[in-house]
């Protein structure tokens, strides 16, 4: 490497990015953690009355947080595996065809760039009890009409809408990653398998999935992270109340954080910080578990 005696020069190039990163990423990381322990914290003045773990106790005791935690878990545990399996099947299908491949690929990628708020309104209307396309179509098969998200909707129905919307909008990213992974797999493995009379399902399970396992692991981890942070989807579907029907409090953990942040109550920023730290830890635990499980199974 070329000898550069001026250390400052590197830092000069780095400075604009580094200053912004220090202010908006590094400092907040520590500060949020610190704030979560501050009692009676007032963010406008910066005053507080010492440190304690009181806010964590409050978060864990809060029934609202428990509901938010439950909602987030249900949403995550259903939508992540389902969307991964669907994306995997679509990718393998797409990879196996020639005609229409580009066209279908474009359709599957469409949801990627869409505006969550705009399409949230569309889903709202698609699942409309009277005027929606969903009830019309399932009506052809003698099912429904289902309330989905109106004032009479059950918790399960409303959750189903969120899950469907989450899967719909998360598919393209997964398909893109899987497809680019599949395209790097040497065709000869498939030819070899074909010559050895390998049944298609066995090719999928014994060759495709193992060779794709780094992508699958990557997608699994990022999808869990993403699903734990669900917020805009629920907001765009159910509005600021975050509720549908009778039992339907559908707020998620991130919602809980923003709600705390938004309230004008004294010390609420600290509560928000504590709940953000809790979310962070939950995500970390899940990621660690997955990495541990995957370590033995992933082929690099």
């Amino acid at each position: 490497m070329f000898e550069n005696k001026h250390n400052w020069k590197g830092y000069l190039y780095l400075a604009p990015a580094l200053i912004l990163i220090l202010i908006f990423i590094i400092y907040p990381l520590f500060n949020t953690f610190l704030t979560s322990f501050k009692e009676n914290y007032q963010f406008m003045t910066g005053e507080y009355d010492g440190f304690s773990i009181q806010h964590y106790m409050d978060v864990f005791k809060s029934s609202k947080f428990k509901v938010a935690f439950k909602n987030t878990m249900i949403l995550t545990i259903i939508s992540v595996p389902v969307s991964i399996v669907i994306a995997l099947l679509i990718s393998v299908g797409l990879n196996s065809i020639k005609r229409l491949q580009g066209f279908l690929q474009t359709i599957f990628f469409l949801p990627y760039v869409t505006n969550v708020i705009a399409i949230g309104l569309v889903f709202q209307f698609m699942f409309n009890h009277n005027y929606g396309i969903i009830n019309t179509v399932i009506g052809w098969f003698g099912i429904g009409p289902v309330h989905w998200m109106d004032a009479y909707a059950s918790y399960g129905e409303a959750m189903a809408v969120i899950i469907i919307y989450s899967i719909w909008s998360s598919l393209p990213f997964k398909i893109m990653v899987f497809l680019s992974g599949l395209q790097t797999i040497d065709k000869q493995y498939y030819q070899a398998a074909q010559i050895d009379a390998t049944p298609k399902w066995r090719v999928f399970l014994r060759i495709t999935v193992p060779l794709l396992s780094p992508m699958i692991m990557y997608i699994t981890i990022t999808s869990f992270m993403g699903a734990f942070k669900t917020y805009e989807h629920v907001l765009s579907l159910f509005g600021d109340g975050g509720t549908a029907g009778d039992p339907g409090n559908l707020k998620t953990m991130v919602w809980y954080i923003y709600e705390a942040l938004d309230s004008s109550k004294k010390g609420s920023v600290a509560v928000a910080s504590a709940s953000a730290v809790v979310l962070f830890i939950v995500i970390m635990i899940f990621t660690a578990i997955q990495m541990y499980i995957n370590k033995k199974r992933v082929h690099y």
């Binding site: 040497d186 000869q188 493995y189 030819q191 070899a192 010559i195 014994r206 060759i207 193992p210 060779l211 396992s213 082929h299």
Partner: peptide, 12 residues
């Protein structure tokens, strides 16, 4: 039986 130029041994 076919032996490929790059052998196509399943790496995993």
């Amino acid at each position: 039986g076919l032996v490929f130029q790059n052998y196509a041994l399943y790496p995993h």
